[in-house]
Design a binder for these strands. Sequence first.
DNA 1: ACATTCTACGAAAACGTTTTCGGTAATCGT
DNA 2: ACGATTACCGAAAACGTTTTCGTAGAATGT
Lengths: 339, 339
Amino acid sequence: MAQKITLKKISQDLKVSVSTVSKALRDSHEISAETRDKIKEYAKKFNYKPNSIALSLKNQKTKKIGIIIPEIVHHFFATVISGVERVANQKGYQVIITLSGESFDKEVVNMEMLANGSIDGFIMSLSKETMEKQDFHHLREVTNQGMPIVMFDRVCNDIPCDKVIIDDVAAGHEATEFLLRKGRNKLGIISTVDYVNVGRLRSQGFKEALQQRGFEVEDHQFLKIEDIDNCEGAIEDFILKNDFDSLVAVNELFAVTASKALQKAGKRIPEDVAMVAFTDGMLSKYASPTLTTIGQQGEEMGGIAAAKLIEKLESKHHENESYETVIVKTSLVERESTP
Amino acid sequence: MAQKITLKKISQDLKVSVSTVSKALRDSHEISAETRDKIKEYAKKFNYKPNSIALSLKNQKTKKIGIIIPEIVHHFFATVISGVERVANQKGYQVIITLSGESFDKEVVNMEMLANGSIDGFIMSLSKETMEKQDFHHLREVTNQGMPIVMFDRVCNDIPCDKVIIDDVAAGHEATEFLLRKGRNKLGIISTVDYVNVGRLRSQGFKEALQQRGFEVEDHQFLKIEDIDNCEGAIEDFILKNDFDSLVAVNELFAVTASKALQKAGKRIPEDVAMVAFTDGMLSKYASPTLTTIGQQGEEMGGIAAAKLIEKLESKHHENESYETVIVKTSLVERESTP
DNA sequence: ACATTCTACGAAAACGTTTTCGGTAATCGT
DNA sequence: ACGATTACCGAAAACGTTTTCGTAGAATGT
């Protein structure tokens, strides 16, 4: 019922000017104590809150951050958002989220919708289609307009912006080396198709680790999953056709699927086959057996991304035109899937 | 570099008035074809897009929906957001997300931040603290200002608004009845503390189902978890002290934890103990054994909530002051944890 | 030829703020 | 007592739109 109260209404009710009300509420010395108190009391009584849209228009900044990610139901992305939200809120920013659903077109549309003044800057992770097409014109348009972008996880190098990533090669290396140190020597890796950066890079780390130890690396050790939602068959094939004593999986889902297939085939984990997965999420913690994982620190990545974006937004001095790539350290969490 | 282009800049460059530009771009008949084309061409060339903040201020509507949920890393909430986002986007709305982290204060603060004109309406699920305190003044303030709210899952009855819930009593009944029909007769339920609605209601359904079948229901059949992050001990106790042949768990986490504890105690699932869980998420699908669950249809709930909110927002005729509670049907998904 | 109707455009208000600039009194200094 | 300062307040511009209204000139009607 009680419609929203504005400066104008207060000014009319109290027979003063709008500017007087505004100044009074912001404790300007130009207003007498008497008038100020009267106005403040009235404002409080009617629960006045400045209209944020009007402020945005006036100040030319919205105090909002736009997020574009492929999916929100992936635990990793959810943790990133959680991290972004935490530091953004703490610095007085709000978070608008849009989902690309791994679609290039939706990514472009969402970006255009947000870039029309709705937000001050972007935090995003590219869709699979975008990675595949290598078409970044929408990103370039936004940066050209002077709107900063911080990319995380799935990034590209063609756009000048800050980035927050994990060193996927090193992490792949670490996972592999960990298995080698446990005495394993017949390793396989279950990865994604190559245009997904993280899959390619982790595979590369896998390869490098093996080569450093003098192993020959052969194609049959690599499984590249195309359709993540229907991976059972491919994974089952993979483990049956090869005689691995250990596996690296670039995400939890592949790992759990492989784990089940192995158990079904009568192999014991970790005795017969050891496993290391990426993304330390729910599944790793609660699968049977629980999975040794390389944690992706989504929460931390989100926090860092938000901090960097806000820093850029609030350094009005535009001279600051340098871009940084933050590499977040991964952490190996040992669980039951490794001896 | 190329700063954002506005109507004013176009009008100056083309030596016409701002109103002419605006009309031309909106295909007004008041503008000659020649002028219109010239303006449109220029606008396209410089990629003009109307500033959404200015539009929001002018139209007194933002085309944005505010979401407040306890946590985003819970799969159920993530699916709800996904559903909201889908239908909202399709109808030209954007989604702003804030997290209460189960804290009453943060819920209030977030609500106040969003209610200052940032959004047109709310979709929310209450924090645990709010449910416990039963303090809804912040909700009432918002509805009093004429801003609609749609609540889902964790709702309260003190606020006039639309609601989207599952019939938790019926669902608890269904889960229990399912086990009874499988011939089980020593049932237990692992639930949350009573101020969390869903836990209480599902427990009630459990009780009713048993009573209808003529069973006596005793306190030792109920476990109410206080601290969801440290539930192992309590659950282990619960299953060791009782000789259940089947369990209902009000969420996946409890179910998986119980499943592990049971297997550790040498019980086979489902032969010795059958289990039904709530929330059909990742864990249920990938745990060992996989879990029979009552799906919560988060995606659908989110979609319905968004549709109802937008419907309310766009029915300018304020006469429409009736509120509806939509009950989403649950679906039982049978997996390995039941015979 | 004169009144009327179109055509095509501009001026201005409105949305809710903040801030700069002016201006009127009253107070001060000498 | 007179100029200068101070205390207090209002007008107006600005942010970027859309829309209502006004109006000049041209075209039309009789």
